[in-house]
Write a protein that binds this DNA or RNA. Structure first.
Length: 265
DNA sequence: CTGAATGAC
DNA sequence: GTCATTCAG
């Protein structure tokens, strides 16, 4: 290249410098809603969908099951840095526009005797207003008894945040056990699960570990470890392959395990 | 923290 | 639908 073409050289240099600066800039998009993010670049472990209806939101993903008017799973990453104490105002639950078959209307829950139980908890997405508000979609809730929701289920969610803080980050999958002939509420017949499950995967090397819970839909004062089950057993019940992208040897080892010795309660 | 219910705009 | 307020586990 001839040096007489100076403007062009300067332009190239400028571009190069800009690119370098950009690459080394801290990634702030989990705290700043004004930055457009690559959607779900963090989700590498999404479960399979029995309905072929995976919905990807900015801060969590889900598989919707129209027959039961709720998600069969909701999955998201929970990082230590996500945990914040900021007080946010609760928005109202609205339908999830990404669900083409229409997610349940919140009125189905009104006077049903059941509360609108978050699957991806609002408290796990408090790091930004958009993340928080995004959990208030009816595709992210399931009918839960009030004392169950604020009782043992709340305890499990708080324990999950405790572990996320301790282990830096967790991948979380949660939902109700959906099956035929469940009790329903509202005009749209939203199914009331008889059990709820939650799976936690600590994928940070070198000690990858996982734990799964299957909790009956009723308040209990029993310690949480009483509800530990293997991921395999949940896969048998739900028909979902929870970590299809994990290397088979790791997957096999993690999923057959129902021990909780690696987790402090 | 987890939620509901009510009345006014 | 939004807002403000009050209340319960």
């Amino acid at each position: 290249m001839h040096l007489k073409n100076k403007p062009f050289v300067y332009l190239l240099l400028l571009l190069l410098i800009s690119a370098v600066i950009y690459l080394f800039l801290p990634n702030k998009d989990r705290n700043n809603d004004n930055v457009t993010t690559v959607i779900n670049s963090d989700f590498n472990y999404l479960p399979t969908s029995t309905t072929n209806t995976i919905i990807k939101h900015q801060y969590y993903s889900l598989s919707y099951h129209e027959d039961y008017e709720q998600a069969e799973w909701v999955a998201y990453e929970l990082k230590k840095e996500d945990l914040s104490n900021s007080n946010r105002k609760r928005p109202y639950f609205i339908q999830d526009k990404k669900v083409k078959t229409q997610s349940a209307d919140y009125r189905n829950y009104k006077n049903s005797g059941y509360t609108k139980g978050h699957l991806c908890p609002a408290a796990d997405r408090k790091f930004s207003k958009n993340a928080y508000d995004e959990t208030f979609l009816t595709s992210n809730i399931s009918p839960q008894k009030g004392d169950f929701n604020s009782g043992i289920w709340n305890r499990l969610e708080r324990k999950t945040r405790y572990w996320a803080n301790k282990d830096e980050q967790l991948f979380v999958v949660t939902g109700g056990i959906l099956k035929n002939n469940l009790k329903t509420i509202g005009q749209e017949k939203v199914a009331v699960p008889e059990q709820f499950y939650k799976i936690l995967l600590d994928y940070s090397e070198p000690e990858i570990k996982a734990i799964a819970f299957l909790v009956p839909h009723e308040e209990s004062k029993a310690p949480l470890y009483k509800f530990v089950v293997s991921i395999d057993s949940l896969e048998t019940i739900t028909g979902i392959d929870f970590f299809p992208t994990l290397p088979d040897t790791i997957e096999e080892k993690l999923e057959s395990n129902s021990s909780y010795k690696d987790w402090s309660f």
